[in-house]
Amino acid sequence: MTTYSKEDLRDMFEGRLPWEKTKEIMSHPKDDDRFDKYIQILQERVSWPEKILMPLGDHLNVVQKGSDRIVKCDCGYEFGDWRVNWKLNALIFVRDDMAKMEEVYPGLKAPDPNLCEVREFYCPACGVMLKVENVPVGYPIIFDVLPDIDGFYREWLGRPLPDEKEFKDMTYEVTASWAKERV
């Protein structure tokens, strides 16, 4: 069975592994123990104690906190239940006019702000940019990925998690509650 050391995988994730070795890992049959080593590597780079169940991006992870599963930034900021789009609890900066577009896309490279916007989502605690979303104006914030965590651990890894949760999108419950709040 193909397997790689945690050190090699960590170096590859950071872009430090020599290209020859990286290419070898790309081309060879995949290693079955990758996910567990991946989680160990991610766990070692954070200072908080909650167990990482699954990464959601460069700095985001779904973690087990008590009986809940929440999205947590590497810095420790908590975004809430993983079944609610984490972006609802982020900071947003929207490039919606030509001046803001041209800060990133100068001149002819800038898209038309009458038709679309560039939404940047930041962690409220550390300011890291977690996601950039380009969509037509008025399009709902996209829930990029809703992983079936229990299905994955139960069916594919053969290690069911305690306190299984219903697999469903709960985002619109939040926006509905926002609409009811008095401003």
Binding site: V104, Y105, L108, P111, L130, V132, N134
Partner: peptide, 21 residues
């Protein structure tokens, strides 16, 4: 053309407009 694709990954930007000139 005037809208660019939504393919920035985990905090990266998508490339800007393509141009026919």
């Amino acid at each position: 053309d005037r809208l660019i694709p939504n393919i920035g990954q985990f905090g990266g930007y998508s490339g800007g407009r393509r141009n026919t000139l």
